[in-house]
Design a protein around this nucleic acid. Sequence first.
DNA 1: ATAATTCCTGCAATCGTTTGCAAAGAAAGT
DNA 2: ACTTTCTTTGCAAACGATTGCAGGAATTAT
Lengths: 341, 341
Amino acid sequence: MKKQVQHTIKDIAATLGLSISTVSRALNDHPHISQSTKQRVREAVEKLDYRHNALAASLRNSRSNMIGLIAPRITMYFQSTVITAIQHKLHEYGYNLMVCQSNDSPAIEKELVGVMYASRVDGLIVSSTLYTEDFSHFDIFNRANIPLVFYDRVPHNYPAHKIQGDDYQGGYQTTRHLLEQGARKIAYITGPLSCKLYRDRYEGYQEALREFDMTPDESLMFCHELNKKNAQLTCKALFAEGGLPDAVFAGNDTTAVAVVQCAKAKGISVPQQLKVTGYSNDSRTEIIEPPITSVEQFPYEVGVQAATLMLELLEQKTNHSQNHISLITPIELVIRRSSRL
Amino acid sequence: MKKQVQHTIKDIAATLGLSISTVSRALNDHPHISQSTKQRVREAVEKLDYRHNALAASLRNSRSNMIGLIAPRITMYFQSTVITAIQHKLHEYGYNLMVCQSNDSPAIEKELVGVMYASRVDGLIVSSTLYTEDFSHFDIFNRANIPLVFYDRVPHNYPAHKIQGDDYQGGYQTTRHLLEQGARKIAYITGPLSCKLYRDRYEGYQEALREFDMTPDESLMFCHELNKKNAQLTCKALFAEGGLPDAVFAGNDTTAVAVVQCAKAKGISVPQQLKVTGYSNDSRTEIIEPPITSVEQFPYEVGVQAATLMLELLEQKTNHSQNHISLITPIELVIRRSSRL
DNA sequence: ATAATTCCTGCAATCGTTTGCAAAGAAAGT
DNA sequence: ACTTTCTTTGCAAACGATTGCAGGAATTAT
């Protein structure tokens, strides 16, 4: 078992009788190095199978070409699509992306922020947990003047760059649509209101009701993490009581799907007796029977925007903490049979 | 705008009148350092808001605590679940995971391997592209004796540790089930056979046919990347011809869903006239009408296995390239109405 | 009081790059 | 022949941590 040496520029310098500075410059295509030397270096690199050590370079340059990303979970369609877009865009510009999941735990999120900082990422892109209300663990990035961009799950009162879908419009248009279809008893299933996007949506919902001279019915409001299990519990409560609602505004598609299935199981016809809408327009909405009305958020575009903003911030070496950019990306209500008579 | 200094252990040493070595040891809880000194260091860290520089430490230690992962795309349910499992497991043991996507492009994959190596990851976990046949770009990891683990899309003839679902059984059991349900003209839609797992599945399929004294019908075999668009094209071809098949073995759920929808659009009844099976058991299979029979691969368990193996390899500092571990994880055929009369 | 231990702490080298500055040699201008 | 300019290279100091070795102080043994 031969001890495998990791060759360094020092070895290249030695074999060629050059100094390491010359080799370094040759590798970086520095103009002061002659073509012939560059060629010799290239050959030696090939021969010795030399590999650049990014750690050493990053340390010296205080620049890692690495962008960190913290998402609650990558298994969600919206999230993985945004991340893919970000990765593609950043890759174009020579940056690498380091993806981590907070698992919707503020404690893990906090830890990951530390890890990212320790790795000296050049920028950080975040979609926070559902429960993050104190954003002070992000302070280090602001203090060190390292670009920090939030998307989707953005903070409310924290100074940072933000990209979010138009959740107010999402809530408004969806509700308005349900009202126009004749619904008057709308059950509202939302994620935790500690999360700004759910608050925004709720405001849109309220505004639409107001236009119909209505107010939210507290007894029809359900607030919990939007997974299948919770959705089923809510359905149970919802369909057990005497007065059935005539519509359900579900905070995501997983919930909407569960509602539709539960309704079918109970013999409640959708959309005749119950109208249902989801959110995110994931691939399940169009294959279920009936297909579910949902809000398209254009995740790929959100990702491109986030990456573009990050790249701009990386470019301008000035102090970014001055005027924070806050972008609202458009959404589109995709109306399907689950809500249309 | 105050110039923000990044504090180092040097600064801590200076404020406390200690040497940097003492500070370093205190931070690492070295036994030779007195409790009182450790306490003072801890306070200074707090006060100066010192942050560990993982780059510098990694360079010195030649150990980054970072594991690289290259997946074809994280938007696939199976992939994102495996990755999540891996991340959770590694995190338990103090490792971080750096996730990148090859986008099913061998060229990008090759580039990413270089990037991972340059970042001096302590290990690399890979699910290769559909088209990777030459795996020599992974040689550097083997030569440098850095743990390399493949999952799902594993190489055929390349020496490495591998974890894969039991695709042979998946192919066999699914086919056998279709035959037992009376199907005799089975269309077989598979991903590129350059990918080992599709070959394994195909062998299982052949074996099942053999047991029924049948041989594959070349005219019913379709081989292409398994996305929605391709599936629709194949359906067109499949349903246009005179003699309809009585079953479709689809290589993934996206394809199976497309087949079912296409059949419905053509007025072909599933499962009466056409039986359909998918692969991966993603959430769409159980909500479509009729629900689709599919193969559960237990992605979370696959991820745990991959991470566990990686951790073991990291532990033993010996030469791992000797006996390569090759694990086959169990699958389970989940039978639903799409294939059962 | 001297020697042997134990407990802490510091010196200085090291990891693999990058880069400001200096300088050597060649070419060109006067 | 002498200065000036240009091209190409090397020296050495960083970047921020870790660690083997040495040594000073305090404690205990002889």
